[in-house]
Design a binder for these strands. Structure first.
Length: 492
RNA sequence: GGCCCCGUCGUCUAGUCAGGUCUAGGACACCAGGUUUUCAUCCUGGUAACACGGGUUCGAAUCCCGUCGGGGUCACCA
């Protein structure tokens, strides 16, 4: 997600993420070499390292440049010799000696002095084109018209533009330069760049800090893979392995990938809305004068425009995302919410489905207004998932709801118990009605009955609506819990 | 360090291009009240920002310069 590269194509074909132009680049390369815009270079990695170190020692920034006395004839002869013998060498692009101008839809006009970008490699010793070469050719061949990517790529753009200005097709047609739009980066709350590697980073650190553990229970990962992953911080473990390792070490991983947010119970519309607002806004007001920031995908499609993308980096605010998600959950029609929750459970918590059985829809309606993410769905109905004997009565709640006041909570409970039998059917609506009727007939406030009931059913003084609370437990369950409460919660 | 980008409440931002209507608006979070059978929701109110210094101007959050701060990037990786 941190690397938001996407591309719009003229032909409507799929954007490329891993350029596959390797086989078809040779013609482009040849024309560049013939024109002297690319040239073979024979330094070894070691030699380059030394040159770099030497520049460093002189406190200069190292840049590879074609030598003043570059012997083209000799170099080409050497190139042909190596081609014949199979010895490796690289091809470099000669950066033009005029500044490169980049027009960015977000940042505006930017001038890059060619002095600061070197003659970069476009074909590696292994014969494959580098990323820079491959994307430019790939995008051109696919008819890409817009390139939206993270600002981290801004410094690559002069290379790409320079390449576009010098590359030609077989028939001599020049390359086009697509519209570039560099988007602000997304940061973690601590200010570090939000990265797909963040999760690996956390787990790697934990594994490294506990050497004994490395040999312990990591059987699901081969030693070779583990060592490689431990040694290379750009390497990522498969998601399943990572999740398992995190669990073994008791680590909480941040949500990074879309799948992470799905697992955590965020609704697609909420994530999409929040993300769209990070670095962009429609610039419109609601009727009450507040900024318009809650919107759906059709709205986004209609109003999104490159011009209103911000330039500065943004921190990813989970609190606000949570608020958006809570609102999105609350806004769903009950049936839709139940369906969404059911789907989530099928994927991540089938145990809850089994435990709830036919009570699922009722549980969903009880949870809907009280949760911020689908993954919190067990919390508000936890009492209904426990057996009557497992309910632990909270001392404070018991004292407040059952022992204090007049009439005494226990007495009200005992009395209400007798009217349970007549509630028919035993559903939220009838339960609520019965509770109301009971209170009116005794001329007591709703709280006088509601709170003792809550304590009896859940052990505490917080629960969903009474109808839902009692309904979830069922008539027999309610009777059992009231009896247990009446027996166990008498004042000392 | 070189180069590039950025700098409005704690966070995301409106306002900046076309200087006055900005004693700087909204959202999230936070605090205080209120509604409600608890919780959640909902309603009302509140705390809180133009990084700093010069300049231009009758007037600057808005234009210019400098400083400071943050970030990105400097590979035969993508």
């Amino acid at each position: 997600m941190a690397a938001r590269r996407s591309a719009a194509t003229r032909a409507g074909s799929a954007p490329s993420t891993s350029p596959t132009a390797s086989r078809s680049t040779s013609g482009f390369l040849d024309r560049l070499v013939e024109a002297g815009l690319a040239y073979p270079a024979f330094e070894t990695g070691e030699e380059l390292g030394e040159m770099r170190a030497a520049a460093q020692a002189r406190k200069e920034t190292y840049r590879y440049r074609q030598r003043e006395d570059y012997d083209r004839e000799g170099a080409h002869a050497e190139m042909r010799r190596r081609d014949a013998s199979g010895e490796p060498y690289v091809l470099r692009f000669r950066m033009p000696d005029t500044p490169v101008h980049v027009t960015d839809a977000v940042l505006g006009e930017i001038e890059f002095d060619q002095q600061h970008t070197d003659d970069f490699v476009i074909r590696k010793a292994d014969g494959f084109p580098t990323y820079h070469m491959a994307v430019v050719i790939d995008d051109e061949l696919m008819g890409v018209t817009h390139i939206l990517r993270g600002q981290e790529h801004l410094n690559n753009t002069p290379r790409h533009v320079a390449l576009q200005q010098h590359l030609t097709h077989e028939d001599g047609t020049p390359f086009r330069t697509p519209v570039y739009a560099h988007m602000p980066l997304i940061f973690n709350p601590d200010g570090s760049k939000m990265s797909k590697r963040d999760k690996d980073k956390i787990v790697r650190k934990a594994v490294q800090s506990e050497p004994e553990a490395q040999a312990r229970s990591l059987a699901h990962i081969s030693q070779t893979d583990l060592d490689a992953w431990l040694a290379d911080k750009t390497r990522q473990l498969p998601p399943a392995s990572l999740l398992r390792l995190a669990a073994e070490f008791g680590l909480e991983l941040p949500e990074i990938d879309v799948e992470d947010f799905r697992r955590s119970g965020y609704l697609p519309e909420a994530l999409c809305n929040y993300l769209a607002l990070l670095g962009w806004n429609p610039g419109l007001k609601n009727d009450d004068g507040t900024d318009l920031e809650r919107f759906d995908k059709p709205f986004l499609c209609e109003h999104f425009a490159l011009e209103r993308i911000g330039k500065s980096n943004a921190k990813f605010d989970r609190e606000k995302l949570l608020a958006f998600n809570q609102a999105a959950i609350a806004a769903l029609p009950a049936e839709d919410f139940a369906a969404a929750l059911h789907e989530w459970c099928e994927r991540y918590d089938t145990g809850l489905l089994d435990a709830l059985g036919e009570r699922f829809v009722l549980a969903a309606s009880a949870a809907q207004p009280r949760i911020k993410t689908l993954s919190q769905c067990r919390e508000p109905i936890a009492f209904a998932l426990a057996a009557a004997e497992e309910i632990r009565f909270d001392d404070k709640a018991v004292a407040k709801a059952l022992h204090k006041g007049e009439p005494n909570g226990l007495a009200v409970l005992a009395e209400f118990r007798e009217s349970l039998a007549s509630i028919e059917p035993f559903d939220p609506e009838q339960i609520e009605a019965a509770v109301k009727a009971f209170c009116e007939s005794r001329e007591i406030g709703m709280g006088k009955l509601a709170q003792p009931l809550r304590v009896a059913i859940t052990g505490g003084n917080v629960s969903p609506g009474l109808g839902e609370t009692l309904g979830l437990v069922g008539r027999d369950g309610v009777l059992a819990r009231i009896d247990r409460c009446l027996r166990d919660c008498v004042p000392a």
